[in-house]
C-alpha cells in the first residue's frame, strides 16, 4: 500500500502522503478498537506493519465502514480541507462521550499545487508512525476502563464549503465533561503533519 506513495525512489507525492496518513489511521483506529475492548478480541487478527504486530478487525461491517470513511478522507486530505479526524467512543446507554481520539491534521509546505512532493525518507516516516502506534498501545495503562456498552464513530472535521457525498451527514461536536487529555507523539510526511491526542472522561 505504502509503496504507491512513492512516485520515485526519494519523493512522496501529495496523494501518497494522504495514503500514508490513511494507512496510519486505519491501523491506529483498529488498534484503538482492540485496545479499548469495543469489540470482542476474537474478532481481531494480527497483522505485521511498521515493525509492529497490529490487531485488525475481521468484522466486515467495521472494515467496510473504515474503508469508505478513509477513502473519503483521502480525497479531502488531498484537497487540504480536513482539520482533524476524531474517533469518538460513546456510551450507548447514556449517549455520553467517554473518549475522543483526535487526529489533528496540519499541512506543511505552502504550495497549493497537486504535484507537491516530499523528500522525507519513507523509513523515517514509518519509524515515526511506529512510535505513535506504540504509544497508542500503551495508552491502555492510564485510560479508564470502559465498563459499559460502548460504540464508536469517526467524525471528520473539515473546513467550510466541502462537497458532501450523499451518505455523509453533519455531526455534533463530541464534548467530554471533566476531561483530561494526553498528547501522543506526532509524525509528519513533510506534507501532512499528524498529531494524536486522546481526551477521556476523568472520573477522579
Amino acid at each position: 500500500m505504502t509503496t504507491a506513495a512513492q512516485k520515485s525512489k526519494s519523493a512522496i507525492t501529495l496523494k501518497g502522503s494522504a495514503q500514508i496518513v490513511c494507512d496510519y489511521l486505519n491501523y491506529g483506529i483498529n488498534s484503538i478498537l482492540f485496545q479499548r475492548g469495543l469489540y470482542p478480541p476474537e474478532s481481531f487478527k494480527s497483522e505485521e506493519n511498521y515493525g509492529l504486530t497490529i490487531l485488525m478487525s475481521t468484522d466486515n461491517k467495521i472494515k467496510e465502514f473504515l474503508s469508505t470513511t478513509l477513502e473519503q478522507l483521502k480525497g479531502w486530505l488531498v484537497d487540504r480541507s480536513v482539520n482533524k479526524v476524531a474517533l469518538v467512543i460513546t456510551n450507548v446507554k447514556t449517549l455520553e462521550v467517554m473518549e475522543r481520539w483526535d487526529f489533528l491534521v496540519e499541512y506543511e509546505g505552502d504550495s497549493k499545487t497537486e504535484d507537491q512532493t516530499s523528500e522525507k525518507p519513507l523509513k523515517q516516516i514509518k519509524n515515526e508512525i511506529r512510535d505513535v502506534l506504540k504509544q497508542i498501545a500503551c495508552s491502555v495503562a492510564y485510560l479508564p476502563l470502559l465498563d459499559c456498552l460502548c460504540s464508536f464513530d469517526i467524525q471528520i472535521y473539515t473546513k467550510k464549503d466541502v462537497d458532501l457525498p450523499s451518505e455523509w451527514t453533519e455531526a455534533e461536536p463530541a464534548n467530554i465533561k471533566d476531561a483530561q487529555s494526553v498528547r501522543m507523539r506526532s509524525f509528519s510526511t513533510n506534507i501532512h503533519k499528524m498529531d494524536t491526542v486522546v481526551t477521556y472522561k476523568n472520573y477522579n
Binding site: F65, D153, Q155, V162
Partner: peptide, 18 residues
C-alpha cells in the same frame, strides 16, 4: 473536554457503528 469545529464542519457516515 470541549470540541471545537475550528470554523468548519464535522461530518460522519450516516450508518456508522454507533
Amino acid at each position: 473536554g470541549q470540541d471545537t469545529l475550528q470554523g468548519g464542519q464535522a461530518y460522519h457516515l450516516a450508518n456508522n457503528p454507533l
